[in-house]
């Protein structure tokens, strides 16, 4: 599970009962559809053929990338190559925690050279995961451009990184947790703050 979903271990700020829904299942579906449209508009405004590859950051980014690819396919009829990129081996905080488990990496067979790579993640927090993913990407090839799509931007960036596509901006306290639930992992769709 991506750590940035969780806030810093706080004393009291978010009580156990204080859970607030940010996106319902229907909101989440609409948001994914909107971001899919934005990706198309930005990369193929006149139906041109910019080669787009979606790469999800495990765990939930992988499934969000698949959903986005599905929506883009429904809208344009094009098949968007989709894969998953585990940035763990490139993190700058490995020595600060017990050893992390690794996740899957699967780069589409077409490769990323000269493609527009859209990194997809559930929550954008410190930006350190994205920084690690950018470094990992560099070792896999040289994309024409890299863009970032996130379901929730919760602020508190520690690096000069911003998202190109944001499902929802949510001002948060550092001690709060943004919990993204997806059917594929959690049995239901939704986003809540606690």
């Amino acid at each position: 599970m991506p750590s940035r979903r969780r806030g810093e271990p706080g004393s009291d700020a978010a009580g156990a009962e204080g859970e607030r829904e940010l996106l319902s299942a229907a909101d989440l579906a609409r948001t994914v559809a909107r971001v899919a449209h934005e990706i198309i508009e930005r990369n193929a405004p006149d139906g041109a053929t910019a080669r787009v590859v979606l790469l999800g950051l495990p765990t939930r980014g992988t499934f969000l990338a698949r959903r986005l690819a599905e929506r883009i396919g429904e809208i344009t009829g094009a098949t968007v190559p989709t894969g998953t990129l585990d940035p763990t081996l490139y993190r700058d905080d490995l020595r600060l925690r017990p050893t992390r488990a690794l996740a899957e990496t699967e780069i589409p067979a077409v490769g990323i050279d000269d493609a527009v790579v859209v990194l997809v993640d559930d929550v954008l927090f410190s930006g350190r995961t994205v920084r690690a993913a950018l470094d990992a990407l560099r070792d896999h090839g040289r994309p024409r451009a890299v863009q970032l799509a996130v379901l929730v931007d919760r602020g508190h960036r520690e690096l000069p990184i911003r998202a190109d596509y944001v499902g929802k901006n949510v001002p948060t306290n550092r001690t709060e947790d943004v919990a993204v639930r997806l059917v594929e992992v959690d049995g239901e769709d939704g986003v809540s703050l606690r």
Partner: peptide, 10 residues
């Protein structure tokens, strides 16, 4: 150490 179960504990 069990500091943060969400990232695994090694």
């Amino acid at each position: 150490t069990g500091t943060d179960t969400s990232t695994g504990t090694g």
